[in-house]
Computed example of a mutant assay.
Amino acid sequence: MKKRILLIILTVLLPVYFLFSLPIFSATTQTVQAQSGDITVDKRLGRTNPVVRVGEYLTFTIEITNNSAFTVTTLPLSDTFNTAVLAYVDATPAPDSVVTTTGQIDWTDLTTQFGDLAPGQTVVVVVGFIAEHPETAIVNRAEVHDAIGSGGALGGSDDTDQSGESIGGSMPLDKRINDGITPTAGLPITFTISITNDGAVTTTIVPLTENYDPLAIQFNTAVPPPDFIDTMTGVLTWTDLTTWFGDIPAFGSVDVTVVFTALMSTINTVNEASISGAVDWYSNDMDGGKDDVPITIIDAPTPTSTPAPTDTPAPIPTKTPKPSSPSEPSPTETPIPTATATATATAVPAAAFPETGIPPAGVSPLTAVFALIAATTPVAIWLWRQRRRSLE
Rank of each mutant, 00 (worst) to 15 (best):
T83R: 03
L117P: 02
D161S: 13
A94L: 10
T102N: 10
V98T: 13
G152T: 06
T102M: 15
G169I: 11
S157M: 11
T101C: 11
V125H: 14
G120E: 01
V123G: 05
T122A: 00
Q121W: 10
S78H: 07
N140S: 13
T80F: 07
G152R: 03
V139H: 09
V126P: 15
P119A: 01
T71M: 08
I148K: 02
T83S: 00
N66V: 08
G120C: 01
T122V: 01
G120D: 06
D90Q: 12
L173S: 01
H133P: 03
T74H: 07
W107A: 05
D109L: 02
Q162T: 15
T112H: 10
I138Q: 06
T111G: 08
Q113G: 00
P76Y: 02
T136R: 06
G115K: 08
A131V: 15
D79Y: 14
T83N: 02
Q104G: 14
V125R: 09
I130Q: 09
V85I: 13
G164K: 10
A84M: 11
E135R: 07
M171T: 11
P95D: 02
T74Y: 10
T101E: 07
T80N: 11
S170H: 09
A153K: 11
A147T: 14
I64W: 10
H133E: 08
S150F: 08
L86V: 02
T65D: 02
D174C: 14
G152L: 04
Q113D: 08
D116H: 05
S170M: 09
G149C: 05
T101I: 08
H145R: 03
W107T: 05
L117G: 13
S163P: 14
F70M: 13
A91G: 04
P76Q: 11
A118G: 05
I105D: 05
S68I: 03
A94P: 02
G155N: 06
D174V: 14
N82W: 11
D161W: 11
Y88V: 11
A131Y: 12
T73I: 13
D96P: 15
S170F: 06
N67V: 03
Y88G: 01
G156N: 04
E135P: 04
V127K: 03
R141S: 10
G156C: 07
G155H: 06
V139W: 12
S150Y: 13
D158Q: 14
D159R: 15
F129S: 09
L75Y: 04
P172L: 11
D159N: 15
L77W: 13
S166W: 03
Q121L: 09
G128D: 14
V98E: 04
V126R: 09
D109A: 05
F81H: 07
D79E: 14
R141I: 12
S150H: 04
H145C: 10
S97H: 15
A91P: 14
V127G: 04
A131M: 02
A84D: 05
T136S: 11
F129D: 10
P76D: 08
T112N: 08
G115I: 00
